[in-house]
Design a protein around this nucleic acid. Sequence first.
DNA 1: GAAGGGCCTTTGAG
DNA 2: ACTCAAAGGCCCT
Length: 278
Amino acid sequence: MVYLPASGCDLRATLESGQVFRWRRWGPRGWRGLIGTTVVTLTQAGSLIHVGGSAAPAVLGPLACRYLRLDEDPEALLASAELDPAIRVALQATRGLRIIRQDPWECLASFICASFNNIARIAGMIERLCRTYGRAVAHRGEPWFTFPDAATLARADGGALRRLGFGYRAPYLVAAARQVNERQVDLAAVARLPYEEARATLLRLTGVGEKVVECVLLFGFGRFEAFPVDVWIGRVMRRLYFARRGATDRRIRELARRRFGPSCGLVQQALYHTRRIF
DNA sequence: GAAGGGCCTTTGAG
DNA sequence: ACTCAAAGGCCCT
């Protein structure tokens, strides 16, 4: 077990803001889940974060630090943004919310499942996906399951996924897994591309459209220029900046990019989580 | 090339 | 039991 300085990170806001779907409450201030193949328990202890799990302390510390982005200061990004009062309120209400560094493939697959869906159901779907196709990792006598890799899901049967409750997303997920597995879209290469090229490349994936691609760029590739516009972000942004005028999601995203610059992703997640907690 | 509409599966929550 | 809405994408005008 290890203690890390929280550096302002609030675990609840970070883990329960809809960027990840696999963490479960563990005790009064804790969450348990997996980072890669390691079972990890994170506990908020004031200005410290306690890290336990199925690996040596020397591994757990850096793993959690990187995952929670404790090595970065979000305030630095916000310094150059144009923040009106409504945005400041959202940032204040969700203070401590970090953008997690997720595995690109897990993030991609998760957000393909997220389309026209709700978070409770997404979590259930992903849990069944991992139990069915993931690898069992024993931790203190309990089995936990890793997120299945692209090669495994590329061999999965669409019908089987439908029976797991994936609905019309089942064929999307299998198709995307094949594209990734066959390197039609090389995620490692995408990580090195400039934003616009990375975006265009990811959009070739089945089941990835204008909204999901922004989520993957933000949560999976750490591109803070991304600004996912879902139904809720669309509503609040239209109310704030497009009074009595209809605005397409594209226009909203473009306004956000101009206004919030490199902190787009942070502002978006603050707005999104604000409507979830109120 | 941009924008709008119909259709698609399932289920958690009220 | 019934209804509603959900971190949308695809395909066609």
